[in-house]
């Protein structure tokens, strides 16, 4: 992520920004091409792969039974993990997760949890004894910028195609995972004084700071996270929220709403 970027390139991106343009010819509010595939891993209860430009993220959802947390006896458990796979970038190394991997995993998790995307009460098998634990594992396969948005999209898509394997436990038929909301994360990079969605790898290296906004279908905000060292002004934050909500609505309509009408 913090790849070394030539000063020339940096100047180039800055100068383009001042003219209102971007390196790859996109507008400030344009995402790169998005391709979404679901149900590609048959061993997982749910899976989805998102290709965002050259960024590739694969999410698998596994459901296993376990005991509930003592303070939420009748609720299932969600555990999100994000792996910056060494095949995704020369910058990534094997070993324990870096702090940015942990941060991104927690932002994805927060979006799903706080928007109430999963009806966790329905993941309860026996109150206080046995519940379903949903493991959402995000694997980054190729890093070409904006892993976080691709991960948010892939995670919710995977959950929307997840089934609860009741048959495996002998407690009835397999049913689709009960979903209540479709949160979508949109990240804005701040370069100079401009905000732009879906930063590419170079833009990520140049940008001072980023703000991820996860919004629900009613336009309310379920999670936010500022990532990066530079500050935002209050006006920029409010502008970013508006841009993110607008883009999230588009993405939701284009890619996700079709999934919820599945059989």
């Amino acid at each position: 992520m913090s790849e070394v970027i030539a000063t020339l390139k940096k100047d180039y991106i800055y100068n383009l920004m001042i003219k209102g343009r971007r390196q790859d010819g996109r507008g400030f509010k344009d995402f790169r091409d998005i391709k979404l595939e679901t149900n590609i891993i048959s061993k997982a209860e749910g899976s989805a792969k998102v290709t965002l430009g050259n960024t590739q993220v694969l999410v698998g959802v596994k459901l296993q039974t376990g005991t509930p947390f003592p303070d939420s006896q009748d609720e299932g458990v969600i555990i999100t993990n994000l792996e910056l796979n060494p095949i995704a970038s020369p910058e990534f190394e094997p070993g324990p997760p870096r702090e940015d991997a942990i941060e991104m995993a927690r932002v994805v998790d927060r979006g799903i949890r706080e928007s109430g995307a999963i009806d966790i009460k329905k993941l309860c098998i026996t109150v206080g004894e046995s519940v379903w634990i949903a493991y959402i594992d995000v694997h980054v396969l190729n890093d070409d910028g904006n892993i976080i948005d691709a991960s948010c999209l892939a995670a919710i898509a995977a959950l929307m195609t997840t089934f609860v394997p009741n048959e495996q436990q002998g407690i009835g038929m397999n049913v689709p995972l009960a979903m209540k909301e479709i949160p979508v994360g949109v990240t804005l990079a701040k370069i100079g004084s401009k905000l732009m969605v879906d930063p590419s790898l170079d833009e990520e290296a140049v940008c001072e700071t980023k703000l991820t906004v996860v919004s629900s279908s009613d336009g309310s905000i379920a999670g936010m996270q500022k990532m990066g060292p530079a500050p935002f002004t209050e006006a920029e934050v409010l502008e970013a929220i508006d841009m993110a909500r607008e883009k999230a609505a588009e993405l939701r309509e284009l890619y996700l709403e079709g999934l919820s009408k599945r059989e």
């Binding site: 927060r110 949890r113 706080e114 928007s115 109430g116 703000l211 629900s216 336009g219 309310s220 905000i221 379920a222 999670g223 936010m224 996270q225 500022k226 500050p231 935002f232 002004t233 209050e234 934050v237 409010l238 929220i241 508006d242 909500r245």
Partner: peptide, 12 residues
């Protein structure tokens, strides 16, 4: 603003 996080449910 140098730190900004949020979770929950808020309108703009």
């Amino acid at each position: 603003i140098t730190l900004l996080q949020m979770d929950g449910h808020l309108t703009s």
